[in-house]
């Protein structure tokens, strides 16, 4: 039973990892940008939620109403004002600028909130669980996170394949130059993509803050999880990213079950194994 519980926990954890990864995947898909500050932006959202919750005495899930639009707006400005300038054939500028951004965000959070570990209180939700069978139960919160991840991915797929904006995303991703000939303002489209990605990051950040203790330094580890989920799942495929997240979550859960100190290592090793035997990932739709 312990093992079954562990694996189910891992699957549900995978939902959170998939949520981390979705924004990263989206941005890479549309503009071939890998944002090193991605994990730190998740943590930024967590702290923003903390500030809102403490300032307005609201329930963490309600804070989404403020945090999501705020992060989306920030994403638009960040992309339009800074990251658009780094796009081009050279991979160094976006990498190094987002690396610098990562350092700035971590230290700004440190300065504003201190290095203390924080946690958002979600009341009864945190401990509520559904009993499926004798000795086997699922936490309600992890289940909500998992379902939210599915909902987000489903929503993004709908935007991508059934709306004019999604068409613009796909066209710009295929051929940015010809997209301009159609009347698409690439700068604006990229900024919208970043806004959408940071909206997802906002949701991920709020759930992270409820689920675990967080502090300004945990961003980079989230980036690594997001990245691993994307690579395992295959580039350019959001549902693949969900599978990637689940595999990562399950690997970590199994590792933790064997020895608590092996949780992270097990996840990284699973990633490296996939990288060696199937470098393109499980369900790739595009080239790296």
């Amino acid at each position: 039973m312990d093992w079954l519980n562990a694996i189910v926990q891992g699957i549900l954890l995978g939902g959170l990892y998939a949520m981390f990864a979705t924004g990263l995947s989206l941005i890479f898909g549309v503009m071939r940008l890998v944002n090193i500050a991605h994990g730190d932006l998740i943590v930024l959202a967590s702290f923003l939620a903390l500030a809102v919750v403490e300032g307005f005495a609201m329930h963490p899930l309600v804070s989404l109403v403020v945090v999501v639009p705020a992060m989306a707006a920030f994403g638009y400005v960040l992309q339009r004002g800074m990251l658009n300038l780094t796009l081009g054939r050279d991979i160094l500028p976006p990498l190094l600028v987002t690396f610098g951004l990562s350092v700035i965000i971590q230290n700004a959070l440190l300065e504003t909130f201190s290095a203390d570990s924080q946690r958002l209180q979600a009341g009864a939700l945190e401990t509520a669980s559904l009993t499926i069978a004798d000795g086997f139960s699922i936490g309600v919160l992890p289940l909500i996170v998992f379902l939210a991840a599915i909902g987000i991915i489903w929503g993004l797929q709908t935007v991508f394949y059934r709306t004019a904006l999604g068409r613009a995303f796909r066209a710009t991703s295929d051929d940015a130059t010809t997209a301009r000939l159609m009347g698409i303002d690439n700068g604006h489209v990229f900024a919208l993509a970043m806004a959408v990605a940071l909206a997802v990051v906002a949701v991920a950040g709020v759930f992270l803050a409820i689920r675990t203790n967080f502090d300004p330094s945990i961003g980079p580890a989230r980036l690594l999880f997001a990245f691993e989920a994307v690579i395992i799942g295959g580039l350019g495929n959001l549902w693949g990213t969900l599978v990637g997240g689940i595999i990562l979550g399950v690997a970590q859960a199994i590792g933790a079950q064997i020895n608590p100190g092996w949780q992270l290592l097990a996840g990284h090793i699973a990633f490296l194994v996939v990288l060696v035997i199937r470098p393109q990932g499980l369900f790739p739709k595009m080239q790296g």
Binding site: V34, I91, L223, F227, L275, G288
Partner: peptide, 8 residues
């Protein structure tokens, strides 16, 4: 891996 993915 390539590019930024290689980096991470």
């Amino acid at each position: 891996l390539r590019g930024a993915y290689f980096a991470i």
